[in-house]
């Protein structure tokens, strides 16, 4: 029977204690994900995305609060939770190198108690979908990182879980492989009503393209949670500019942040030029920003007014861009 919520957390907390310090990885996370949703976690490294996933997959105990997956408490009913979930993590080279792709996959179906005949049929189907059919008998040690990731993705789907956790699944994949994985994830949800996917990513476009709802998380706290469209709509009353300039100094950014009506400014440094994302309350503030640019001896190369993106929402909520967060993490 389908529960009301695929995932529900109330005031979820997680603290890591070391000899030197106490780190709050999650600080009161409240979530309610309904069956059938593709729910995304968007945030920089260390924001709390993976910690949340670890707790929900019963790998890590929470320090406080409650968490339920498919109606079962992760702390007291971990075995029941495990019957309904699976997980795929990206950016790692996991897998038993001495086993073939098929053997690796078959082994995990046995951990879930699947009938061998059914398991092999499903393995064939998914190998075909992910373009790995000709590698079924290849030892995993001979696979590239991308192909291993595809195999792991198949492992996640093999057991037909009610809740599938995808933790940065496209990390390290080439464009084509990432697209295949995204397309199939959406297809799997569309053809299996009620199945739920929780995706963590720091690719804005991935979250925008795939997710029904997105939670923006930073510092262990959820800053916003809504559909990508609604999140972007929240910036509709603001104006968003993209500027390409000659390299600017940090003092320029500080000066711009002081201007009344500047919601946020973020910088992405490139080769001989900087890209600035600027969110203003009003068009009329722009001349003041440009004047600061001149004051700091920087030149304007191009200027474009554009529709807000999830990146803008993130910058507006967190105060800096995702790439800036990762650079300082």
């Amino acid at each position: 029977m389908q529960p009301e919520y695929a995932i529900r957390t109330v005031n979820l907390q997680r603290t890591y204690k070391t000899k030197e310090r106490v780190l709050k990885a999650l600080d009161g996370v409240d979530l309610a994900v309904r069956p059938g949703e593709l729910f995304g976690f968007l945030g920089p490294n260390g924001a709390g995305k993976t910690t949340t996933i670890k707790i929900l997959t019963t790998l890590l105990l929470p320090s406080g609060g409650t968490a339920e997956v498919w109606g079962f408490d992760v702390l007291h009913e971990a075995d029941a939770v495990r019957r309904h979930i699976n997980m795929v993590s990206g950016g790692e080279s996991s897998g038993y190198g001495l086993l073939t792709v098929r053997e690796n996959l078959w082994m995990f179906t046995q951990f879930h108690g699947m009938d061998s005949k059914v398991a092999n049929k499903r393995i064939d189907e998914l190998l075909e979908v992910m373009g790995l059919a000709d590698r079924a008998k290849t030892r995993v040690s001979f696979l590239s990182t991308g192909l291993r990731q595809k195999m792991n993705y198949i492992r996640g789907l093999l057991t037909d879980p009610d809740v599938l956790f995808l933790d940065e699944p496209t990390l390290g994949l080439d464009v084509e492989a990432a697209r295949t994985l995204r397309t199939y994830t959406r297809h799997w949800l569309d053809t299996n009503p009620g199945k739920t996917v929780v995706l963590t990513t720091h690719y804005m476009q991935e979250a925008d393209e795939l997710c029904d709802r997105v939670a923006i998380i930073s510092g262990g706290t959820i800053l916003a949670c809504d559909t990508p469209t609604s999140l972007k709509y929240s910036l509709q009353q603001d104006v968003v500019f993209r500027l390409f300039t000659t390299p600017v100094a940090p003092a320029f950014l500080q000066a711009v942040e002081q201007i009344a009506g500047v919601q946020s400014i973020s910088q992405r440094s490139g080769d001989q030029r900087d890209e600035l994302s600027l969110i203003l309350r009003d068009d009329a503030i722009l001349p003041q920003v440009l004047s600061q640019l001149a004051n700091h001896n920087a030149g304007l190369l191009s200027l474009e007014k554009r529709q807000p993106t999830l990146e803008d929402v993130f910058v507006n909520l967190v105060g800096h861009s995702l790439s800036e967060s990762e650079a300082t993490a």
Binding site: T58, L59, D79, M87, S94, G95, Y96, F108, H112, R155
Partner: peptide
Amino acid sequence: MGMLKYIAITPSSMYGY
């Protein structure tokens, strides 16, 4: 192998394994 976590989240018995 980086696989213990994937075994740990299955409904199987860690002792048995």
